[in-house]
Design a protein around this nucleic acid. Structure first.
Lengths: 120, 120
DNA sequence: ATTATAGTTGAATGTATATTCATCTGTCAA
DNA sequence: TTGACAGATGAATATACATTCAACTATAAT
């Protein structure tokens, strides 16, 4: 009977706690997606972009001006957000307008700001 | 009268939109903190750690076993989370027990999962 | 047709950061 | 007081990724 049945460099202190936690943990795939989602909004530039377009749609140039950044940089970030299904866009003539794909983002911002205020 | 009054490599297309967005944007400091908060939970390992301890407190060894990771790696991440005020800890003998600092994390997880489900 | 502008994209560079390794402290037991 | 273990931590390495640069497409105007 081994003291350490798990693949880790230390012994188990509270076996029940560990097993309980293991049971309630979602699958790895869920954690990958969840972490990926937070990682996407966990960047100052993307935070600002999402905030800017959360009120009404904006084209790339306007967003670049709001953030005082290059079109290229903004476009790269918008591409990342689009491929991840966080924003969507539609074209009108030469311009491409971006909006949030759904409104979970606004909710997440709300709680994030609550957390920050709680820390002050 | 210059066509481009802002420090950006492109023109403003919709002046009103840009000004409106600029007015409602929080200060940079807020965005730094907000992005930092999401960045912290935007990592698979830290996501798992937070999830594991969200139910009841756990010591470092137990967390390491739940995640099948080394104590050192877990401890580094816990240190980061602690210094950022996301988790807190108390010592009992040789062991250090970690819990969430407040329950905004659980709420954020809830919305994150909603977003993921919305995408399936 | 030609020119200007909106936007995208691949490659390169620089920066940030997660994990590992080795070492250290603090606590308990023998 | 010696040994064993929980945990923390600095340095090093490796990986991820944000921005820049240059080149490209597409649309509109002259």
């Amino acid at each position: 009977m081994s003291k350490n049945e798990f693949i880790c460099d230390c012994n188990i202190i509270h076996k029940k706690s560990v097993e309980k936690a293991l049971n309630m943990m979602p699958k790895d795939e869920i954690f990958y997606k969840l972490a990926d989602f937070y990682k996407l909004i966990g960047d100052t530039t993307r935070c600002k972009i999402l905030f800017a377009i959360s009120n009404h749609e904006m084209c790339v140039c306007d967003i670049a001006n709001v953030l005082s950044m290059s079109k290229s940089s903004v476009s790269h970030q918008l591409g990342t957000l689009r491929r991840s299904g966080i924003v969507k866009c539609h074209k009108e003539g030469k311009e491409v307008y971006y909006t949030l794909d759904d409104d979970h983002i606004s909710k997440v911002f709300k709680i994030g700001l609550e957390h920050i205020n709680h820390k002050m």
